[in-house]
Design a protein around this nucleic acid. Sequence first.
DNA 1: CAGCCTGCCTAATACCTTTAGGTAGATGCT
DNA 2: AGCATCTACCTAAAGGTATTAGGCAGGCTG
Lengths: 203, 203
Amino acid sequence: MTARRPGLTTRRLAQAGAELADEVGFENVTVSALARRFEVKVASLYSHVKSSQDLKTEIALLALEELADRGAAALAGRAGKDALTALANVYRDFAREHPGRYAAAQLRLSPEAAAASAGGRHAQMTRAILRGYDLTEPEQTHAVRLLGSVFHGYVSLELSGGFSHSAPDSQVTWTRILDALDALLRNWPAPAEPDHANTSTNR
Amino acid sequence: MTARRPGLTTRRLAQAGAELADEVGFENVTVSALARRFEVKVASLYSHVKSSQDLKTEIALLALEELADRGAAALAGRAGKDALTALANVYRDFAREHPGRYAAAQLRLSPEAAAASAGGRHAQMTRAILRGYDLTEPEQTHAVRLLGSVFHGYVSLELSGGFSHSAPDSQVTWTRILDALDALLRNWPAPAEPDHANTSTNR
DNA sequence: CAGCCTGCCTAATACCTTTAGGTAGATGCT
DNA sequence: AGCATCTACCTAAAGGTATTAGGCAGGCTG
């Protein structure tokens, strides 16, 4: 009696999990909390996800895809600094609107999961931006990694409150950083000649 | 009988917690595991830490301090690109040697804890690097934030395996990124004239 | 319309967190 | 020394999450 079947599916759980993450933080997403949200007993979820870890992975994959979709949309029809700014803002805005999802997207994935994820699309999008600049292969990859680092690093620090209560507004810094990156990409330094023994990392 | 008192203290717990974090990952640091490590009952730890959260905060503060100490040591007697490279390597090496501690250092601290943390020293060190370049105030802060973002972003992505199995070696990219940052700082773009309505963030 | 299959449930185990209330050995006071 | 106290760890208990095993009912199939 009263047998209302909520119609759970893995995807539905991941979506609800993503919402939950935005509300209470990704680290507080729990199988139990999700079950409560669906008004269902905890054990029921285990037909759809293998484990708590699996649920988190599922949420991460969803977030990565959503983020990639937004990036693709923002990049359409843009090039050069315009494209750079657009993609950068996609990451920042996404993180601010959906902190839980953003945190999920940082989850360390297993190699298999990573391969199946939208991670590749992200790299491709960043690479696409560089078409507006004049970099060739080894350097292009370095630039892709630099952009990824700045986007992720800035957004991440901003989200942890790093820049919240200090002098220049975070928005201003963001704009200036994008200016600086644009300038840097237009004026990318030439690699040093094969000089061994360089910038060392101890150990 | 056999009443060997392990001599627990908050600091000792934080240190052991930091080691544990490096071994099993910061997210798996648990009051129980720590108690096992000291061969002591779980409840005993609660005389020294208020809660599991408190323990994590304690570990984070320790990690931040350790990292700041290393930074200060590396920066001594260096300037310009030399200083930039040295500090950058401190972060990267620390993260690679002590992933758990590094993760701990990213813990979102309460405003009070943050104020009491070594966070300020980190900002000061980055600012010190900029003495070797020619930037004045509003721009200097932007640059500090950019450097922070790159250091954290790169190290973080590298640690999550982002660059592990792709073409150019991560070390090479790191070197090139430091070259690029040095070039950028020596050639920092002038701010645009007061032109309202700029690089917008939706919403 | 009988049977099967799917989808959610009950039950049980195990671990982690946190609080309350001891207890024994070390410390200190006279 | 003798006694009180205090400290540092312990026992006990309650509550939450994760995970697995097995059950049952209602809708789909033939």
